[in-house]
C-alpha cells in the first residue's frame, strides 16, 4: 500500500501541488495555501474591527455587527458558501470566480468567529487596564492599541491559531463550488485512478495534517517564548524546552 501511495505521489505530485497550472488555473496545494493565507490575512484585521464595533457604546456600530456575527455563527459554512455562490451572481449579475466567492465567504465567516475570540480576550482583561490607560490620558483607541489589544490578542493566541487551523480545513468546502484547491486536485486524481480512493485520500489527509499540525506547533512555541520572556527567563532556554513539552502535551 505504501508503494501505491508513493506511485501516486510520483505520478501526480505536480497536479496535487499546483493543479492544472500553467495550462489551467492555479490549483492544488498552492491554491489551498493561497486561499488560506488570504482568508486569514483578511479575516484577522476584520475580526478586530468587528470586535471593537461590538464593544462600542454606539448602537449604530454595535447592532448591525451583532446581527452579522449571530447570523454568520448560526448558519453552517456550507450554507453560506452556497448562498454566495448562487445568490451573488443572481443579485448582481456579475460572474464571480469561485475562488473569490470562497475567499469572501471564508473571510466573513472566520472574521465573525474570530471577532468573538478577540472580544472575549478584551472583555476578559477587565476594566482596570482601560481605566489605567484613560487615567494616563490615552484615548480610547490609543488604549486599545497599546494596552488592551496586545494583551487580549496575546492571551487569545491559542484560540486565534486554532481558528486559523480551522480556516485551512474549511477551504476544503470550496470543493462543492469547484474551487481548484488540493481537495479538488485529489478528487481529480481519484477520478482518474478509480480503484485507489483510500490511498488518494490518505495522501490528502496527511498533507492537511502536516500543515495544520505545523501551525499548531509554531503557535505553542511562540506562546512559550513570550511566556518565558515575561517570566524573565532566557528565550533560548524556552526554545530548547518547548518542543519536548509540546509533544508530551499533545499525546
Amino acid at each position: 500500500m505504501i508503494s501505491d501511495i508513493l506511485v501516486i505521489i510520483h505520478d501526480y505530485w505536480l497536479l496535487l501541488l499546483i493543479g492544472q497550472y500553467p495550462n489551467g488555473p492555479l490549483g492544488g496545494l498552492a491554491n489551498t495555501l493561497i486561499l488560506s493565507a488570504l482568508s486569514i490575512a483578511l479575516a484577522f484585521p476584520i475580526s478586530i474591527v468587528l470586535a471593537l464595533a461590538r464593544l462600542s457604546k454606539w448602537p449604530i456600530l454595535r447592532w448591525p455587527v451583532t446581527v452579522l456575527v449571530y447570523v454568520t455563527r448560526g448558519v453552517p459554512l456550507l450554507m453560506l458558501i452556497l448562498w454566495s455562490y448562487f445568490l451573488v451572481p443572481l443579485l448582481t449579475g456579475a460572474d464571480v470566480p469561485s475562488f473569490i466567492t470562497m475567499l469572501t465567504t471564508l473571510v466573513v465567516y472566520q472574521g465573525a468567529f474570530l471577532s468573538e475570540v478577540v472580544r472575549a480576550g478584551i472583555v476578559a482583561l477587565g476594566n482596570g487596564q482601560m481605566d489605567a490607560g484613560r487615567a494616563l490620558g490615552h484615548s480610547y483607541l490609543g488604549t486599545m492599541r497599546y494596552i488592551i489589544l496586545p494583551q487580549a490578542l496575546y492571551n487569545m493566541i491559542p484560540s486565534i491559531l486554532s481558528t486559523f487551523v480551522s480556516t485551512i480545513k474549511d477551504t476544503t468546502l470550496g470543493y462543492v463550488i469547484n474551487v481548484p484547491d488540493l481537495t479538488f486536485a485529489a478528487s481529480q486524481v481519484n477520478n482518474q485512478l478509480l480503484t485507489q480512493p483510500f490511498q488518494v485520500f490518505l495522501i490528502l489527509a496527511l498533507v492537511y495534517y502536516a500543515i495544520c499540525w505545523s501551525l499548531t506547533y509554531v503557535a505553542h512555541r511562540l506562546e512559550r517564548r513570550i511566556t518565558r520572556r515575561r517570566a524573565g527567563l532566557g528565550v533560548r532556554l524556552a526554545a530548547v524546552i518547548a518542543p519536548a513539552k509540546i509533544v508530551s502535551e499533545q499525546s
Binding site: D131, A135, L136, G137, Y154
Partner: peptide
Amino acid sequence: KTRELNRMRSRIGFVFQSFNLFPH
C-alpha cells in the same frame, strides 16, 4: 472634545488599588 478630556486627565495622576500595571 475627548482630546481635551484626555489632555486634562493626563495632568491628573491616578493610583489604583489594584495597581493596574501593564503586564505585557
